[in-house]
Design a protein around this nucleic acid. Structure first.
Lengths: 185, 185
DNA sequence: TACATTTGTCAACAAGTGTTTACAAATGTA
DNA sequence: TACATTTGTAAACACTTGTTGACAAATGTA
């Protein structure tokens, strides 16, 4: 028999959550089984059910570390485009984008899609529209969201070589003005 | 016993393909079973294996009706942004976007993702970069792709209300200049 | 007519899924 | 010490999945 897992409920729960976030980000909800997660976390499958209840609830918690719009929106209005572009494109923040990647990779699942619809509208588009103001604020905010989603998908999900080969600065230079154009219409 | 299916191999194959395209577009590769498809096509599951070999091959064929970039790129350079935006946003063309939706909803599956990577790079970004020319052509082309993917995801996959409530003309007015800015850098 | 091929139906398979239950060992508590 | 609780393990469950093989009826062909 191999060594049994040390008895530390907090560490076990955290390990499962970390493994789940990483694997969901790379493979999506339907691309990963609870046994895959248990294997990565080096624990028994039954512990996931015990600590999180169901796969749905685990996914929910793994993904709910929300995107914080206020980090970017609280800055100078003239640099919103650049700040947001840099935030999305910066490799340093890759871990921070895991929840977004997990959601983008889980669009074959209705629970995950419903969750993402809600997060997108209430935590991103609506507050951004208020912050933007002016005409067609909701449409412009939704278009900002579309750019973020498109860049994240093309770069981090589809891993487009044309995107990955470009330097951070060139990428920021290209994408920032597109976002900024929606701030100052 | 219910009436047996009429013996028409061509019609059966076409029915399966049509059902597959529609269901894959709405639910993704991992969100739909062969029995779901057989049920929609009103045929027996075994016929899918017989006519298409495997689920992978069925998906491949259902999705391979490629996006034809030349329809848009052959027009006036000054109207590329508007034409492409209108193409993506036009509801009339919804059926034509089914393959794209199917791919966007199948990012939890490695076969589908690999296929999409290939299609994106060889059939869209590379020819578009050539057509665009100038500095950072590949990055600019990839950014056009990102906008298309983001808009399609936000509108047709996530069905953002802020997007759906906006009129076609307002949407085109908002998105076309973003694309056009990448044509004339 | 006789026979081969095509087309569709039915049942089963092996593998994988999320989840639950029974049990053992460690830890906390009196 | 004695006993309850917590934590981890092992096995099984009911179900769904893609795929296959045996069989029957329709169609084509000589």
């Amino acid at each position: 028999m191999p060594d049994p897992r040390p008895r530390d409920a907090n560490a076990t729960r955290a390990g499962i959550l970390s493994a789940a976030r990483s694997l969901f980000a790379q493979n999506g909800y339907d691309g990963i089984s609870l046994r895959d997660i248990a294997n990565q976390a080096q624990c028994n499958v039954a512990l996931i059910s015990r600590y999180f209840g169901s796969k749905d609830e685990l996914f929910l918690e793994a993904v709910s570390e929300g995107f914080n719009l206020s980090d970017i929106a609280n800055t100078d209005r003239q640099h919103f485009g650049e700040n947001l572009a840099r935030y999305i494109l910066s490799k340093r923040q890759r871990g921070a984008l895991e929840p977004l990647q997990a959601l983008l990779r889980s669009t074959s699942n209705s629970t995950a899609t419903a969750l993402m619809q809600d997060i997108l509208e209430t935590q991103f588009i609506a507050p951004l529209a208020t912050w933007l103001g002016g005409e067609n604020a909701n449409l412009r905010a939704a278009t900002v969201a579309a750019i973020i989603i498109g860049v994240a998908t093309t770069r981090d999900v589809l891993e487009s070589p044309s995107f990955l080969k470009s330097s951070l600065e060139k990428s920021v230079e290209t994408i920032a003005p597109l976002i900024q154009a929606l701030v100052n219409p």
